[in-house]
Design a protein around this nucleic acid. Structure first.
Lengths: 341, 341
DNA sequence: AAAATCGATACAAACGTTTGTAGAACCTCA
DNA sequence: TGAGGTTCTACAAACGTTTGTATCGATTTT
């Protein structure tokens, strides 16, 4: 019966209990150095360590080895539908390799962002995954030269100063626009995300590009920018867009939340989707298949994004410097929010 | 221009740069001990620390002080709709107090759960919030006597061995049953969650209790147990329930995911909700107002649960031992998935 | 038989802090 | 002037590891 003692058991405790020096215990307990100690003794050490309930103290070992076995992940909004599957993927990959994950929520607040990064660096994280970058992010500068490798996720910065794992937003929005055009739409509005975020900017570019390809005249592809990737701001932007362009037959929203905001406006203005107006989202967030009407959207494999980001980070921690970014292929999912005009 | 040096700056570095002993630097940098050093010198120290870009090493300080400033949070499913807002609340409260949060996903896998707890304890977390407890959880035993205070969240264990923050499930399900009864339903089925989880068990009890209060005969309140709180398992359970009780007019699902699984079955069997059958969920997960039909459900304030759990934990870390659990008051939200039979 | 080699273990330093204590300088006051 | 205080700073130990080096038998080599 291993009654847990008040004072934690240390290497020295199991050393004296076994009658050897504690450095020997250290080697015996570490599989990589176990061969340096006589098998007989090693066995005795393992045994007493077990009965004493020895637990290594990572702080001490990290202090010595300079590797904490912890990585930091910063997301802009932990409670959004987008990030949980991503986080799950990250945590899955990292735990497998023996790392644990500190998660923090920047809430798009620069001061908080700073605080978080400082806290993570003080805690000597071995690496960072940042999903909260803005296009021109002064906060990144402060740590790019730091000892912890960094990878960006979902959003990148203007100069690609760190490797990033991204959805191919330009292509993705293109899929949506072409889908709508294929249904016969020629008056398509875009509700863009904030221009300060790479996702907002890239999707806007993708929209304009696709419209150009399809020779949709400028007057028939109005754009309104939403102040945030949120349902509320999507609502506001949609009201503006519809007021200025009553003849629109379709809307390409920069993400699913904005699309849901549009749903609210449709309901309020008595517009039936897709009969009166079509709309597409972006991300294929969980449960977009069960909203009413089920949302046609651009799927990005969120868990894969997390897996990929953590894989990239682990590689960088291991010293392999990956050049360039990872672009995840998006995929259009047609549901019932789009129909012929 | 604070060019980041290759070797991190330590107390000693700023000490020699200022011409004082490094212990003096330590005191000067710590607001609590700054009064021990002459203001003039303290100012000089702060200044050189700033220009050198000094960053404290938490590992070293934690090793000495035995407080890591990190707490661990274990959830059963990070990607579910339920936990992200809870996590956000926890992280919010903890960061405010200077703690950072290690999050891990047990995926309901005992072995993984063990690994996670061991990893967190090795990293000397100051406390633990466990949302992944089962009713009889041997894993908890291993750490209950440990140095890190623990609070349970969402689920509790059979004996209440640690303080818990819970939704009042019995009352909550009661609200749903009474709502349905008020609409005239007298044949109400329950799809229960796993009996090994306190949420599954408590909600089943609440259901039976409420039916007893309303004198609904046993034959008219059938129960089927879902193997998990998931849409897929909810689907399976619903098929069974409907097959065995074709005359049911309402279903009380143990949570929203199970209810969504029922939606799938309804669609498949041509049942129109709420015309042919009513259904209630539990949790009021995000976006349950936008599914079709909008789901009537029992709301629990998820962020509050996180806030409360972290508050409780901080109190315990601070040495105040809270007796008893926190029961959050649930609230019924009537939407369009329920109507008179 | 002395020297060289080797395997196993003990010793000690280091990682970067915090904090108790010793000591030095200065002041106060009789 | 010198005893007794105050302030401030330096010294040193400790936290629990990892890891380079020294030591010490035992074995092998010449």
């Amino acid at each position: 019966m291993p009654a847990e003692p008040k004072k934690p058991v240390t290497l020295k405790d199991v050393a004296t209990a076994t009658g050897v020096h504690f450095s020997t215990v250290s080697r015996a307990l570490n599989p990589a150095t176990r061969n340096l100690v006589k098998p007989q003794i090693a066995a005795r050490i393992l045994e007493t360590a077990r009965t004493l309930g020895y637990r290594p103290n990572s702080l001490a070992s990290s202090l010595r080895t300079k590797r904490s076995g912890v990585v930091g992940v910063v997301v802009p909004d932990m409670a959004s539908l987008l990030f949980p599957p991503i986080l799950e993927g990250i945590e899955h990959n990292l735990l497998k390799e023996g790392y644990m994950t500190i998660v923090a929520n920047s809430a798009n607040d620069p001061q908080r962002h700073r605080l978080i990064l400082a806290g993570m660096m003080e805690r000597q994280v071995d690496g960072l995954i940042i999903a909260s970058a803005t296009l021109r992010d002064p906060i990144l500068d402060e740590w790019l030269q730091g000892p912890a490798p960094m990878v960006l996720m979902n959003r990148t910065d203007e100069f690609g100063r760190a490797p990033a794992v991204l959805s191919d937003d330009i292509k993705g929005i293109g899929l949506a626009v072409h889908h709508l055009a294929g249904l016969g739409h020629r008056r398509i509005g875009h509700i863009a995300g904030p221009a300060s975020l790479s996702t907002g900017a890239a999707r806007l570019n993708g929209f304009l590009l696709a419209c150009a390809e399809l020779s949709i005249p400028e007057a028939q592809r109005p754009v309104v920018t939403s102040a945030a990737f949120s349902r509320e701001e999507g609502r506001r932007a949609c009201i503006t867009l519809l007021a200025q362009n009553p003849d629109l037959t379709a809307i390409v929203a920069a993400n699913d939340m904005i699309a849901l905001g549009c749903y609210d406006v449709f309901a309020q203005q008595g517009l039936v989707c897709p009969r009166d107006i079509s709309i597409t989202g972006y991300n294929d967030s969980p449960f977009m298949d069960v909203v009413s009407p089920p949302l046609s959207t651009v799927r990005i494999h969120q868990r894969d994004m997390g897996l990929e980001a953590s894989r990239l980070l682990l590689a960088r921690i291991g010293g392999q410097d990956m050049p360039g970014d990872v672009l995840l292929r998006p995929q259009f999912v047609a549901r019932q929010s789009t129909a012929a005009p």
